[in-house]
Design a protein around this nucleic acid. Structure first.
Lengths: 202, 202
DNA sequence: ACCTGAACACCGTTCAAGT
DNA sequence: ACCTGAACACCGTTCAAGT
């Protein structure tokens, strides 16, 4: 391993992205360098430039992969506010599962796939009976903003100390999410099929 | 300039932080290096290490300065939800005024001053008649998360293209903020003295 | 006390060269 | 087509040395 191959290639875009996300999980975004990603693949750093144009490019596709995983975890039956709620829960679930995922997303660009296919597809499912296309965009922006900001706040040890270090962070998040999505003011979660996230069926 | 001084010092923590924020405004966070900050002060890079322990330290105090400016812009009479609303508006106003302010905050640490004085002071003012201390923390977390995430989303050119490129971003933000703070579902801004931000009176 | 100059390890990126 | 090795500019950080 590590020497030029004459057979099938050693790397692939998916392999690199997966390794990058594993490195992110393990060491956080501060340590996420191309050198470390390459080292985890037993490859020299410039090898990555055959598959990606820049480090920013790697970030973009890491972000796409995370977003796609979130979408895949959603019940395809869901529409409207129920879909928004499930999306908000799944987004938070993913950000808890991958360390610094929110910071990665905040630094990363948006791929063509996400911009022209995934987001429009999601918006189309959200725009149901009583939600216009414009409202769908606004709701989605609010939910993504809330989940992104919340994860970033929680990742800061000083902040999370201020903001209480018990297990009620989830409750507080779901409270805020419910206010954004359903307009309810307090307490009981709305009646939603699959109030938690679902794993992809594949 | 640039040579060791025998008189009063050329630098000071405030001067450095101000120069850093000006550099941030001008060139964005990607170009915010200690070398650039030092160059804008006609000083060598290691000089900054006399005043700050690390680049992270500089970031922390840049963030503190921004937070303090936001707090200073608030009407000291405000309490409870009215204060939360004004804080959410002022936070957004500041993030619009300083490029990449949200990304800076998301990367920066929290200073002792912010953690032990400014935030507790704000929380004490928020916890009014019908808001407990615990609810105040949760509300504040939600508002800071929303404003932070919103600014980050808007800063991404691809995202803001998807999310409509008209001037209604402000309306959408205030809508979401109103749902978080007051629980109202749509439209009219609540009756609040000073629905916009105020400049510091000093 | 306050700042410079030189040095170090690390990084992203490019590119000729190997297979 | 796919990967290495060497090189470049830049970065954060340390530290002895100057005033």
């Amino acid at each position: 391993m590590g020497r030029p191959k004459a057979g099938e290639p050693e790397l692939a875009r998916d392999v690199i992205i997966d390794a990058a996300i594993e490195t992110l999980k393990a060491d956080g975004i501060a340590a996420l360098s191309l050198a470390r990603i390459a080292a985890s693949l037993n490859v020299q750093t410039p090898a990555l430039y055959w598959y990606f144009r820049s480090k920013a490019d790697v970030y973009t596709y890491m972000s796409e992969k995370i977003f796609r995983d979130v979408l895949d975890s959603l019940d395809p039956e869901l529409v409207g506010r129920d879909l928004l709620w499930a999306f908000g829960c799944a987004m938070r679930h993913k950000q808890c599962a991958i360390r610094d995922a929110a910071k990665l997303i905040s630094m990363a660009g948006v791929s063509d796939e996400v911009r022209t296919i995934l987001v429009p597809g999601l918006l189309a499912r959200v725009a149901d009976r009583d939600i216009t296309a414009s409202q769908a965009r606004n709701y989605l922006t609010a939910i993504q903003s809330l989940s992104l900001g919340w994860a970033i706040f929680e990742s800061n040890p000083a902040t999370s100390e201020v903001m209480r270090r018990s297990g009620d962070g989830d409750i507080a998040y779901r409270d805020a999410l419910a206010r954004l999505v359903f307009g309810v003011v307090l307490g009981e979660s709305p009646a939603v099929s699959g109030t938690d996230h679902q794993e992809p069926s594949s």
